[in-house]
Design a protein around this nucleic acid. Structure first.
Lengths: 239, 239
DNA sequence: CGACATTTTGAAACGAGTCAATTGGGGTGG
DNA sequence: CCACCCCAATTGACTCGTTTCAAAATGTCG
């Protein structure tokens, strides 16, 4: 009955601290013995255009979703962009419900396991259980908010802010998903390349690299390749 | 039973011609006698933070939705952006389902009428009728796709392409909503300011104005203040 | 008609993109 | 086990698009 505990809490937290929190969960399905599937690093869970059979909840690992657009111009390169990164407990495939086809590719950034929830089963289930229906709606709504915040970030923030917000969001999601641990000097291991980050943030990979270096020089973060330590959180928040 | 006719068709059309089509509909509720409400130009249908009571379908007129973010930095100006324009038959308020509060402001750009669909009624209704449930999910999914496409546009396109895509999208939505008329020299009357357009496209209003002027000089459009004629559609498509 | 908002246009400054070269790491094969 | 290769990441110099600041023109509403 109660509104979606997970998605709701996440969104409220986001609204509270201002940093775009960009994730979506789905907990009420926990009790149901859906099958799982393992996806190797670099492999696609699904591709754009494929018929939508299931929604997926990430059990472990990490995915990126990539949207492609035939450029308005036919003869120039199509626009492509990473539209999201997805960690444990987050749900994939929601954008495909409207067309019954997946609208993006979902690619594993590391060996990952997902829970498979067939849409043919999910919809009747939601008609049966009000709480589940509400949570599915809440998850989809949270995904709308997530995408809108990404748009807002791309439309209004300079590179420094985007990268800082990305790091803060990443750190927050890890805390939420796994270690509810300490506060200071959070260590992150980024599973994605600079190019992925850049694509997601609407920046070139060189700009991402430069910005990270600059943040390190100024003492906001520690940096060693894909290992990032958040040294001064408030400094990041004040970009 | 059949998947959401309207939203699905719109998304397919978008996928086909490449131009981001950015709208969402909800037709199955037509039969139900929901009440309506009139909103004057400049007035808000709802504001961010207000408890979510209803979803709204635009009957006539036009709205903009505006998202605000307390900048990651507290003392600098908050980020704000127009996240969408909404015409007849499109549904407003979907982003509020996850938190039970509206996540953005909805402001009428002209005198408008909306149909009020209380969420307390809508959810049980969707549990009753499978087609309705599916359509609601489809609408929300379409909204996710819409927001993702906006993000993609903001992340990858230069100013010319953004403005061109905006005009094409606008024209297409008018055709779909009202005049299923001719092909050549479609006349548009933009209900929003250059500043609104710029905010939506992640550009300054001066850039929007300059870009429109340039498109006129090159013969792609006719321009007279807020009146725009699409002279050479393919030229716009090839930006 | 007058006050105010919107739009247009110009010139200069800045941020991010582009091109290019170098460094570092991880994996494979000799 | 080391050498090599490939991919990722870093850094620099230069270019270009967009923003910024400013002023004038146009439109709108009371």
């Amino acid at each position: 009955m109660e509104p979606s505990v997970d998605a709701g809490a996440a969104a409220r937290r986001a609204a509270h601290n201002g940093a775009p929190t960009l994730h979506v969960r789905f907990s009420d399905a926990d009790a149901i013995p859906f099958p799982t599937r393992t996806v190797e690093r670099g492999d696609a869970l699904y591709c754009a255009g494929e018929p939508l059979r299931s929604l997926y909840t990430v059990q472990s690992g990490c995915f990126k979703t990539v949207a492609t657009f035939p450029s308005t111009d036919d003869d120039s390169a199509p626009h492509t962009q990473v539209t999201g990164f997805h960690f444990a407990n987050e749900t994939l495939g929601l954008d495909g419900v409207c067309t019954n086809r997946h609208e993006s590719d979902a690619v594993a950034l590391e060996p990952s396991v997902v829970r498979i929830m067939p849409v043919g089963i999910l919809e009747p289930l939601c008609r049966e259980y009000a709480a589940m229906q509400h949570e599915l709606l809440a998850i989809m709504s949270a995904e709308i908010v997530r995408a809108s915040r990404l748009a807002l970030m791309l439309g209004t923030m300079p590179a420094r802010e985007r990268v800082a917000a990305f790091l803060l969001d990443f750190a927050e999601r890890l805390e939420a998903g796994a270690t509810p641990a300490g506060e200071h000097a959070i260590a992150l291991l980024l599973p994605m390349t600079r190019a992925d980050i850049g694509s997601y943030l609407g920046l070139e990979l060189e700009t991402v690299s430069r910005t990270l270096s600059k943040l390190q020089r100024e003492g906001a973060i520690g940096l060693n390749g894909r290992q990032v330590r958040i040294v001064d959180r408030s400094m990041l928040e004040h970009q």
